[in-house]
Design a protein around this nucleic acid. Sequence first.
DNA 1: AACAGTCACAACCGCTCCAAA
DNA 2: CTTTGGAGCGGTTGTGACTGT
Length: 333
Amino acid sequence: MGHRCCGKHKVKRGLWSPEEDDKLIKHVTTHGHGSWSSVPRHAGLERCGKSCRLRWINYLRPELKRGSFTSEEEQIIIDVHRILGNRWAQIAKHLPGRTDNEVKNFWNSCIKKKLMSQGLDPQTHNLISSHKRSAASNKTAGSNTKSQSHIDQKRPVFTVNNISQMIDSSTEINYSISQPIVSNAQPPTVQPIMAEPTDNQYLVQNPNSCWTSVTDIPTFPDSTLNISSASSSLVFGHLDDSNCIWAAGAEPFEAAPRAMDLQGEQSKGQVVQVQQEKDKLLEMEMKAIQDMDIAASFDQSSSFDFSLVEYYSTLMSGVMPQDYSVADFTWNF
DNA sequence: AACAGTCACAACCGCTCCAAA
DNA sequence: CTTTGGAGCGGTTGTGACTGT
């Protein structure tokens, strides 16, 4: 059975031989690829155009960097994936010389397992509860199906014990959600724990994810929360099974909604607009990451630089369907 | 040595998007 | 407006190498 794209022709499939590679390289370097569908004919290959394109892009291009991923590249993949989700082509753009296929394979074979071993859901980058974690660890590489990720996408509710030890004595609580992409972001809830809370013990729930940062936290409960830039490790580092309560029935967190996710009931014209806005965002995002020297901003401990998310949040202002800005992610209590 | 299980990676499949006819 | 074909993308599968028993 031939490919759908070239069903009439008898095409070879499977691994490419060195001779075939030579033919393709010779043809593309001298004539360019032009229309991929005509490449096999002109290059004398019994392959379909799609196969030629894939072989060139993923393997034969001279600018490709071969070899294993560096720890810096791995960190970039993790952090950009946290923002963009499984958009391998976009992620690969942040890694010169790497292809989307390469990034995808590396993710599925290495990074995913590493995150799961750390108790993190590879889709959401949120913590997995212990009983789910053991189940997830038994899963094979195919566990990234939508149904599975749906199950694991519980949003964490975490307690902050002895909050006064984490904060200074300022009277203003600064708190915001670094969640620039989700369009229907909701404010976090901060409430005393139901069972005999102590003065310094509160539940802090980020309804969208655990991208929660806290600085200058003061005295509850009358104060205004207003967190802008923060050391993410402060709260993030306190998350573990002992202080993490899992919200039952929470809606799954969308790590990186696409244009369709943003559209809701919008008209087709608006969908096009959202798509254009998304493209614009991605363009800005590319530049932003280059400008910020993203590799330098992520350390080896996998803690996330929230200033980057803040930066994205800024970029999103004017791009979000309802014109969200950073200010919209700050709430008073 | 033989076999089974695991892993990494190349390649394919099916889908969407878009432009041209 | 509809159809068609090319390009691109993400998910999945196939396969060879490696490792443990």
